[in-house]
Design a protein around this nucleic acid. Sequence first.
DNA 1: ATTATATATGAAAATATGCTCATATGTTTA
DNA 2: TAAACATATGAGCATATTTTCATATATAAT
Lengths: 118, 118
Amino acid sequence: MEKYDDRCQCRIIHEDRVGGARRKALRADEIEGLSQFFKAFADPTRLRIIRALEEEEMCVCDLAAFLEVSESAVSHQLRLLRQLKLVVNRRQGQVLYYRLADDHVSRVAELALEHIRE
Amino acid sequence: MEKYDDRCQCRIIHEDRVGGARRKALRADEIEGLSQFFKAFADPTRLRIIRALEEEEMCVCDLAAFLEVSESAVSHQLRLLRQLKLVVNRRQGQVLYYRLADDHVSRVAELALEHIRE
DNA sequence: ATTATATATGAAAATATGCTCATATGTTTA
DNA sequence: TAAACATATGAGCATATTTTCATATATAAT
């Protein structure tokens, strides 16, 4: 004999709103993808990398110099940005040049900047 | 007698690009603000809260029911979103109704959604 | 071939984050 | 005034994230 419904024992004040939210909710994988995408921007180091690459492509050691952090740290962050498909690279000799994968990236950053400047 | 320059011992391949990046760089406090702003979107629970509030205002227990997480957890996340000025609330009796602070919030979410759907 | 350069990567340490639990606050109702 | 309800909050735990350090890989130069 259970004391409560085992699924959700929360009181619901507005059934309709909860239902509405459920109906328009994104699928779990979309939410996961979206939050991953935003995670890329959610760290000062990565955000500075993104901003720097808006201008022109840069190599790892340029970025390390600009950011004043270790090349290893930059490389780890770039891997993350690569996995999230926000940056791509091209090799020229021993140097890898990184650039932004597409312009949604800059546009999102620009829009957010507007927000915080208001 | 130091072995290296104590500021930055990185080799720089493209002085000009590093310089360019430095010149167009945002101030430290803007970078901090921006990354904080994005941090709000970088968690599935908060993202779902934001999406739910795009439709209409909701109270804490509605959100808890929709998200199927504890009201305490929702409340903690709402505090964070409040501190980041992404949501505001209004009290009606003992119920607090939350809504998005402005429409930059939805626009950023929408733009990012376009990105991941491509 | 050997050495140097540019970057990548795994493991571990330092830190940050998200949730739970217990308790506190503010509002309404009895 | 007391009890009930909606929400807030601090402390602590579990997990995740970011960096460092040591080492590995790929390309170029000697």
